[in-house]
Simulated assay, not measured.
Amino acid sequence: MEEQVTNVIVGGVVSWTVVFLVMRKSFPKRSFEFCNRTVSTLHATLAVILASLSVQDWMSPISPLASKPSPLQARALAATLSYLIYDLLCCLFDKRVSVDNVIHHLVSITGISAGLVYQKCGSELVAALWITELSSPFLHMRELLKELGYRDTDLNLAADIAFAIIFSIARMVGGPYLTFKTLSADNPFVIKVMAVALQLVSAFWFYKIARMVKYKLTKRTTSKKTA
């Protein structure tokens, strides 16, 4: 299975890069970020599907704890690992480098790699993948809509609110529970450290999202009063 995982990772990095280059060639007027976010949306959708298909028991989705990744789980994790490597490299070529995003990528890459190398934590990592990617399509939709000319519209506000709600429930309710389970189980120390680090990054982003939503709603209320 190790060779298959390696093939998925290498093939995935190449595939995501090719999709990005095709986007850049097909839509030359669109920005670097627009094309990258389109690829990211495709990955998020694929990641949630693969993670969902790899759950062994939906009555207890993170069981068995500290277990060897099943072939389906390994495939889901390898596909996301390939995307994270591509996206990290892609972000470094962008003009705007987000430090917190780079940290998130490094933490995720380290955690998934450790799970695949140690052959542990399959259920927890897939659950983390599902939780973290569930809100991603709405995250990218917010920015894509702005470039398509829908900034400050009801549609863009709906995407903002949907993203904020899904992110908050997934990362600030499901995330702490999953982190606790990962720390309680017999997982390698590096995975436990990465689980805590990922939750800290999520908490920081939650703070930023709360400020964003407050600003958007205040701005919308003020605009209506002055209209």
Rank of each mutant, 00 (worst) to 15 (best):
L53N: 11
N101H: 14
M59N: 12
T80Y: 13
L92Y: 14
D100I: 14
T80C: 12
S82A: 15
L116H: 05
K120G: 02
L129K: 07
L106S: 06
A78Y: 06
S108E: 01
T110D: 01
S70Y: 09
T80M: 10
S60Q: 13
P61L: 04
V55K: 06
V97Y: 14
Y83R: 05
K120T: 02
S82E: 05
D87M: 04
W58L: 09
Q119F: 03
S54G: 01
S108I: 00
A114I: 03
L65M: 11
D57A: 03
S113H: 03
L125A: 01
P64F: 09
Y118R: 07
P69F: 03
V107Q: 02
L89Y: 09
K95W: 14
S98P: 02
D94N: 14
V117L: 14
I49L: 13
I131L: 12
L116P: 06
R96H: 12
T110Y: 01
A114S: 13
C91Y: 10
I131F: 12
L77A: 06
P69C: 00
A66M: 08
D57S: 06
W130S: 02
L92D: 07
T132I: 10
A79H: 15
I131S: 01
A78S: 15
I62M: 11
I85C: 05
L92F: 14
A128E: 14
D100S: 12
V99N: 07
A127Q: 08
Q119C: 05
V117F: 12
S67F: 00
A66D: 13
T132M: 14
D94Y: 13
A76L: 06
L72V: 00
Y86W: 13
C121H: 09
A66C: 11
I109C: 04
A66V: 03
K68Q: 10
D87F: 03
L88P: 00
S113F: 08
V97R: 15
N101L: 14
L92Q: 12
H104W: 07
F93T: 04
S67A: 11
H104A: 05
V97C: 11
A127L: 10
I109G: 03
L53Y: 09
C91I: 08
C90V: 01
F93P: 00
L50T: 11
A76Q: 11
A114M: 08
A114D: 01
K68A: 09
P71T: 07
V55I: 15
A51M: 07
L77S: 04
M59Y: 11
K95F: 13
Q73F: 10
V126Q: 04
A127S: 12
D94H: 14
T132F: 14
A78C: 05
W130R: 05
I109P: 04
L125G: 02
Y118A: 08
V126D: 02
S123D: 07
L50W: 06
L50D: 08
T132Q: 12
V55A: 06
L116G: 05
H104S: 09
A128Q: 15
A76H: 07
H105Y: 07
T132V: 10
A114F: 03
Y83H: 04
A78N: 08
L81P: 05
D57Q: 03
S98R: 12
V102S: 11
Y86K: 00
I85W: 02
D94C: 05
Y86M: 00
A66W: 03
T132D: 11
L88K: 00
G122M: 05
C91L: 14
I109E: 08
